[in-house]
Design a protein around this nucleic acid. Structure first.
Lengths: 343, 343
DNA sequence: AAAAATTACGAAAACGGTTTCGTGTTAATA
DNA sequence: TATTAACACGAAACCGTTTTCGTAATTTTT
């Protein structure tokens, strides 16, 4: 087993000083032609590569970014992650991922683990439990320490940092408007039981669209479900008891389950009921009928998040003064129309 | 912005030496009661946490493991990753992910980036291009440097390292045997165009089962597709020209696409044709009909990989002598029967 | 009371780099 | 020829820890 070669080894072997070797490898003007060539040749021969850890310690940055997401087996987060990884890599950064499992405690622990020098900045999407709890002290601590933070999708107004979100309210509004335009008037909303921000915004858009069209907002047309434990009976009852001709679901899963159930009940999609979901995942493309859905452009979201983070990280390195004005970038969601709606 | 506090800061503030602080925080017997309490209280008050990078440099291990996978927006890899992350985290390790995008070059670059001190060991699944090319020098270099390596799923006999795979051949054999038992005799195989190992093993099981049942292996019953660019016309022609009453697909995508096409052709599933896929992903559960599929237990695979890696990493730390006998663990795949087959 | 042992701490090296500054040698200038 | 500038390199500090070893001061033992 050949251990990695260090500057010291090269210096000893070539009978020069460590600093000379270091400079020679950086092609410094300080070092003479011959010495440089000698050192570089030797380094190449023995495949010298600087030790990342040592460089990090010295330079006070790691070229690592920490990503904390609620779940990884989840199409949307996965696409965002790919965007992050792609951009980060292109800038020479590596990505450390931790999954919070939608747990507040895990989110806190993960952040603390990474905040002690392992990373230059964080990208995260809040755990459901954190959102429920409304406790964001761990995030505030991070930002107070001067560690850059970018939140995407599941964010909170309570913490000051860069954010990347989609225009949830508007797109939900547009979708419902469109359904109304298609002649639908009994439009249901299938949403998440009690956790905030994203679902709420979509619900808000839904409500506004109804309102603007002169339709009443009817609580009975709103079904709340739990993502990880979808209650099929509740769905069944809901559709048995309400007259519904279109459904907006805040995610793909709810849409797929609901579609399956109303189909079993003998309804035809989209003739009797139109369906629209959120987050254009793999199921939407392959369900029967295929599902009209709001694309959240996770890849783009990830890339943009990474870009914002890295910009801030590198700005911190250079300038002393910090720019305390945080940006909130909005990615335009787009509707992908498929068989589950009538155009 | 409160910068992170260091040992030096504490030492200065409390007018003791850095070593005393370090020892006091570790509850060393060397340090007197009073001093210890004073230091610990101060550290707690200012929320002192040791700098990971410095500790890594000193201790020669990072508590990071590098994971290199072909794709992250892919259910199987995603579940494996979750397993890795879960286990690693429980052992105090963090996970750095790089995606190779099935590209040889990216795989090499990513490994080199991480191999310079950033990680204690690798877990990887080979890029398709690497498998095609048959060039594994980058892996050999890694192991020669004494960096532990665990390969999962897409592995190669050419490199000596720990491996975690499923019993591809046997499960494919069993599945085909079962299809035959159900009275099917024109059994097709839909496989990957030209990349090795996993698909080949499944094909081998397919062949053996036919052979053992006295059925001829018929090349015309084997369809080769490209994962990222599925040729629907080819599928259509295939099923038009061959009499087929059961299909084994080496992945879920191929199965879903094929099912859709034969359904459009007027075939009934499973009455006319049974379908079985590999890797129990999200589509299998929600397709119509639901798809019988081989579960690869990605989560378990990930956990086991992480466990094997960490064991080796920590063994390296302690003992001087290395254990050069590598293990290959086999995860038992299981068939999940759904509507696409007759039981 | 002298010798030995213990206690409690500090100095310093080490991990592997980067970078500033100083200096001896040669080349250019006055 | 004396002075200055340019060149080529090395010493040493530094990043933030851990850890070995040395040593005053105190306590215990003879």
């Amino acid at each position: 087993m050949r251990r990695k070669i260090t500057l010291k080894d090269i210096a000893r072997e070539l009978e020069v000083s460590i600093s000379t070797v270091s400079k020679a490898l950086k092609n410094s003007e300080e070092i003479g032609r011959d010495t440089k060539e000698k050192v570089q040749a030797f380094a190449k021969l023995y495949n010298y590569k600087p030790n990342n850890i040592a460089v990090s310690l010295k330079n006070k940055h790691t070229k690592n970014i920490g990503v904390i997401i609620p779940d990884i087996v989840h199409h949307f987060f996965t696409t965002v992650f790919r965007g992050i990884e792609k951009y980060a890599n292109s800038r020479g950064y590596n990505v450390i991922v931790c999954v919070s499992d939608d747990s507040f405690d895990k989110e806190v622990i993960n952040m603390e683990m990474l905040a002690n020098g392992s990373i230059d900045g964080f990208i995260l999407s809040l755990a459901a439990e954190t959102l429920d709890k409304g406790d964001f002290n761990h995030l505030k601590q991070i930002t107070e320490q001067g560690i850059p933070l970018v939140c995407f999708d599941r964010t909170t107004p309570e913490v000051n940092c860069d954010k990347v979100i989609i225009n949830d309210t508007k797109i939900a509004y547009d979708v419902v408007k469109k359904l109304i335009g298609n002649g639908r008037s009994h439009i249901a909303l299938v949403t998440n039981k009690g956790y905030g921000d994203v679902s709420d915004k979509r619900a808000e858009g839904y409500r506004q669209a109804l309102n603007d069209a002169g339709l009443d907002y009817n609580e009975n047309l709103v079904l709340e479900l739990t993502y990880n434990d979808i209650d099929e009976d509740a769905i069944k009852k809901f559709f048995e008891n309400q007259k519904v001709d279109a459904v907006l679901c805040v995610n793909e899963m709810f849409a797929i389950h609901s579609m399956g159930i109303v189909q079993k009940m003998g309804c035809s999609i989209p003739d009797d009921i139109s369906f629209v979901g959120f987050s254009d995942g793999i199921l939407s493309k392959y369900s029967r009928p295929t599902l009209t859905t709001v694309a959240q452009h996770g890849d783009q979201m990830g890339q943009l998040s990474a870009q914002m983070l890295i910009e801030r990280v590198e700005a911190e390195n250079e300038e002393e003064e910090e720019n305390e004005t945080y940006r909130t970038e909005i990615i335009e969601a787009t509707l992908i129309e498929r068989e589950s709606t009538i155009n």
